[in-house]
Each structure stands twice: as structure tokens, then as C-alpha cells.
Amino acid sequence: MNNNTPVTPRPLRPLGHDVRHRVLSAAQLREHGVAAARAAAQCRAGGPWQQPLPGVYLLHPGPPTSEERLHAVLLYAGRPGPEGAKSVPAQPGSSSGGRPAAASGSASSRSASSRPASRSASPYGGVMITGLAALALHGFGSTPGLRALDLIDVLVPRTRRLRSTRFARLIRAHSLPRPELVTGVPVAPVARAVADAVAELSDAAVVRALLTESVRGGHCEPSSLVRELSQARLLARPHVVDAVDALLAEGRSLAEGRLYEMVRTYALPDPVWNVDLRLPGGPHLGGVDAYWPEQAVAVELDTRAPRVGGPGGPQDDDAIWAEYARKREHLERLGVTVVHLTPRKLRESLEQQAMVVGTALTAADERDPAAYVEVLPR
């Protein structure tokens, strides 16, 4: 018995509408009783099949559809290596798909905190579509359609012993994020897909459009996107830094707009907006986004993200959170109730956040009077 001998021969199903019946790997063909020699014969000039990628067969002679190309890329990338070769560690500093070594290493090895993908649940071995193709699947309007893409990026384990070839571009990662299923296709989360796309782009307008749509379209939070770009070491590129500055400004502006909407829609008392607090003749206590002086209630928007630029590069997220926590604890020791809201909470559950703020305002009469603080315009 050799590798061409089928283990459990089964008849091939009719092509039908299921892409899984139209695109099969060599291993799947063997399960159906089709030996490698027969598959090769079917792919000869004028034959009924074709081989769009090594080890992957399209069971009709016409051009592959976008869905078939995606499926072919996933089948190619999901196998351990050419002719069943075992995976071996990639060489340090190697890149994939023409990506510069610095960008490739970061875009590939980042997201140590990402949850590992479930390998057993996917017929593709845990690999997933990323980059522009993933964004097109996520519904981005600023990306080319799948038919217009010459290359389809696919995220694979760093030890996968395969090369980018034809329309499949492999991007290697030490730790894979958990994929999201879009029309049955495993795709990288938006923030990761954007970072992988930006790694291949030099057009500042295109980069800015992608980042803006990510936030404006509600696909992801600015903080998660900037974190991925930082881990990809893309913040050293001036056109990316400029786009990130615009992104952070837009993200805060959108969150502030939702906060104004919450106060108006749910008839909360009018606060004073965007003010600094300090003790009379004493130290500065920090800025807040909304403050109700009579109830001593403050709302602070958490739009934190790794800071870009400067000699130290991106600031660690833990340090930013510690800064928030110190300010909140100081204010609460003075009797000021601080309500901490995130852009996601305002976007996904505005009424619930209004109830949280309303409860804090109502409970003011039951608390001890707060220390007097000065309110200054910010």
C-alpha cells in the first residue's frame, strides 16, 4: 500500500452548489478512491479538472469563483506541508508573501494574548483568511471585491512548512487568534485583518480609509486596532502613524457623540462637558468627559489606546490603565462617583449605560457630601 491507495473509497458527490464538493484536496480525493495519477490525468490540457494550487483540485474546467478560490487557499494552507512533510520551525527573520522581515515578523508573531483558534472545529486545520480578503468578507466597502484581488492572504502557524504560491499568500503567526465564521469561511478578527492588510500597503489614503471604516463602521475599537498595529511594528511607518492619529481622534469624537445622545435621549440632567477637576488651591485631579456638580458624579470615557510616537514608542496598555485607576480612586476618596464607560458599551447598550448613570445620580442623596472641587474648562 502507498500514499495513492484509498483507505475508505467513497463515490464523489455531484458538484451541486456546495463548494466543498467542487474543490477537494489530494487527501480528500484519496478518501473518495481517486489516486494521485488519476487526479493528474484529469487535470491535463482539455481535461475536466484543474489544479489551482498544489495539492488542491477544482472539479470543473471553468474559472474558479471567489468562493472556490477562498476554499482552495484554505485547503492548501491547512495541510502540514508538501507531500505530507512534517512541520519544521521557520528560520528566524524569514518573511512570507513578499512582506518585509520586520513587518512580517510582527504581523506574524503578534497577539500573544490572543486566544488560540480551535483547530478541531475547522476542516482547515485552524488557518484563516486575513488581510483584504478577510475585510471584504467582513463587509468593508473600502476594500476591493474578492474577484479583484490577485492574492488572498491566509494566516497560518509559524511552523507550517508551506510557501506562498500563485494566489495564496501565507502570513505566519506564533499564536493564531480565534477565527470568526463569515458565510462559513474562517476569517481573522477585523483588527488583525486590518493590520495584515496595512503591512502590505503603502498608499496613505487607502490605509486611512481602512482604519476609519474599522471604527466608523463599528467593526472594532480603536484600542484593539492600534494594539495590533503596534504589535506588527507598523507604527514606525509615517503614513500609518498619521492614519492612527486621525483614527484615535475619530474614535473619541464618535464616543463623545454617543454620550451626548445618551443624555438627550434618556432625559438625564444636563452636565458640564469636558472639564478639569481640582481641589481649591490644591492639586489637579484630572479631566472628565461629563460632570454633575450637584450630585458629584463624573463620567469618563475609556478611549485609551497604546500611544504612538515619542522616544519610547507605544505606551504599555497596563500603564495607561493604571493611570485611569489612580485618578478614579483619588476622586472617589473625595466622594466623587466616577462612571467608567467604553465606546463599545455606548454603541451596543446605550439604554443600559443611561440607567447606570441615572442610578448614580439618583443615589447621590444617600451618600455623604463630597469634598468641594473646582470645575474648570478643559
Rank of each mutant, 00 (worst) to 15 (best):
R264A: 12
V190D: 01
A236C: 07
K327V: 11
G257Q: 12
A197S: 09
V19G: 01
Q50I: 03
V7N: 03
P314R: 03
V182T: 10
A255F: 02
V336R: 01
G84Y: 02
R30I: 03
V272I: 13
T359R: 15
L229K: 09
E300R: 14
R237N: 05
R99M: 12
A370M: 07
L341H: 03
R13E: 11
A102G: 06
S230A: 15
S96Y: 02
L285S: 06
A305Y: 00
R378M: 11
P123A: 09
G184D: 11
D153M: 07
L132E: 04
R326F: 07
S202D: 08
S106G: 15
G62N: 10
R344P: 00
R166Y: 04
I171F: 00
Q315N: 11
A236W: 05
A35V: 11
V187P: 00
H284Q: 07
A255S: 13
G126D: 05
D270L: 14
T143R: 02
E294N: 12
L74Q: 03
V185S: 01
E83G: 08
L331A: 05
E348S: 12
G217R: 13
D318G: 10
P123M: 10
P80T: 12
E213L: 06
R233T: 08
P80L: 09
P238C: 13
R347I: 07
V244K: 00
L58N: 05
G81R: 06
G309N: 11
A134L: 06
I171N: 03
L70H: 03
L149V: 10
A298Q: 04
P222Q: 04
V187K: 00
R160T: 14
R326Q: 13
R233C: 03
S25W: 02
L59W: 02
K86Y: 01
A204T: 08
M355C: 01
G281C: 08
H239R: 12
L201I: 11
C43H: 04
V7L: 14
P343H: 04
R347E: 12
S66G: 14
L210V: 07
L210Y: 00
P293N: 14
